[in-house]
């Protein structure tokens, strides 16, 4: 489909597209050059006390086999998967409500609440979470008022997870809504007319048909979270570390640019592998639909 569309566009406006080709190539070259710079740093030795790296080495990748780094990679993967799953669970009913509600007011309100975080910067949102999760923050004040005591939430994996879900939710809701919009409402009515309870209709018709949208949104949330930096940095407070935080510490606290670059390359590779696996699953599902 996408291929056909772009050919049609190409035939429709060849002059315009040809005119845009040069800037597009220049941008592409700039991006590729930046990435190449990271790659070449990753393959060079760190000289303590020097910003300029030394000669060729694979040591930066070998050193990552240390349990400390493997642990951070593993935590990052878990946080990404957790974020994707939780934002899907939270986003699915919201996307559904946006599509199926008859009240225009309700639709606008849900959209406003879900989309607004997109327009706040990541830092602002993250500080918001610090206020909510902190020891004398909103949640703990509420718990204390209820007589349930206080809970440690800031600088915990759970707190980081909550903040990450908040960050990815708008994208997930928008992608899910786009996917769910393809499901005809008449299909649910047909299932009920055939004797299926609304729950049975949901699990046998609506949910299987939403799978492509769920996988696309989940994949995006996963990849999006992999590069999260400010949220784990501030809400995790150094106790919850993701790859990007490690890269930052090594690069800007220890000035070990080569090792930081190697970690970044490994993270990129891990993302690529995860995405490839997910896209394989997605293709399987789409073939069955």
């Amino acid at each position: 489909m996408a291929g056909e569309k772009s050919t049609a566009l190409g035939q429709g406006a060849p002059g315009l597209l040809r005119g845009l080709a040069l800037p597009a190539w220049l941008c592409g070259l700039a991006f590729a050059a930046a990435l190449l710079a990271v790659f070449q740093y990753a393959l060079r030795a760190h000289v303590p006390g020097e910003l300029e790296p030394g000669g060729f080495t694979l040591q930066n990748f070998v050193a990552q086999a240390h349990p400390l780094y493997i642990g951070v990679f593993w935590d990052t993967l878990l946080l990404c998967a957790g974020t994707a799953i939780l934002s899907l669970l939270a986003g699915y009913p919201l996307a559904w409500a946006i599509l199926r509600t008859r009240s225009r007011l309700a639709r606008s309100m849900i959209l406003a609440i879900v989309i607004t975080p997109l327009f706040l910067g990541e830092i602002v949102r993250t500080y918001g979470w610090i206020v909510v999760l902190g020891n004398s923050g909103f949640l703990n004040a509420a718990l204390a008022w209820l007589g349930l005591g206080r809970a440690e939430m800031l600088f915990t994996t759970g707190g980081v997870l909550a903040a990450l879900v908040h960050v990815t939710l708008p994208i997930v809701v928008i992608m899910l809504a786009a996917g769910l919009a393809h499901i005809e409402p008449e299909l649910e009515r047909a299932a009920q007319s055939l004797g299926a309870t609304p729950a049975r209709g949901f699990f046998t018709v609506t949910l299987p048909l939403s799978l492509p949208g769920i996988l696309a949104a989940g994949t995006t949330a996963f990849a999006w979270t992999f590069s999260a930096f400010a949220t784990p940095q501030l809400v995790g407070g150094g106790k919850v570390n993701m790859i990007s935080n490690l890269v930052y510490q090594l690069g800007f606290a220890s000035f070990n640019f080569p090792f930081a670059a190697a970690l970044a390359v490994s993270g990129l590779a891990l993302t690529a592998v995860s995405l490839a696996a997910l896209s394989l699953v997605t293709r399987r599902v789409e073939q069955r639909l």
Partner: peptide, 20 residues
């Protein structure tokens, strides 16, 4: 009585066949 307990057979305008 709710739809799913009425024992009706319905053909919809779009047919509403389950595509999967």
């Amino acid at each position: 009585v709710p739809v799913w307990k009425r024992d009706i057979g319905m053909v919809f305008q779009s047919y509403a066949l389950f595509p999967h």
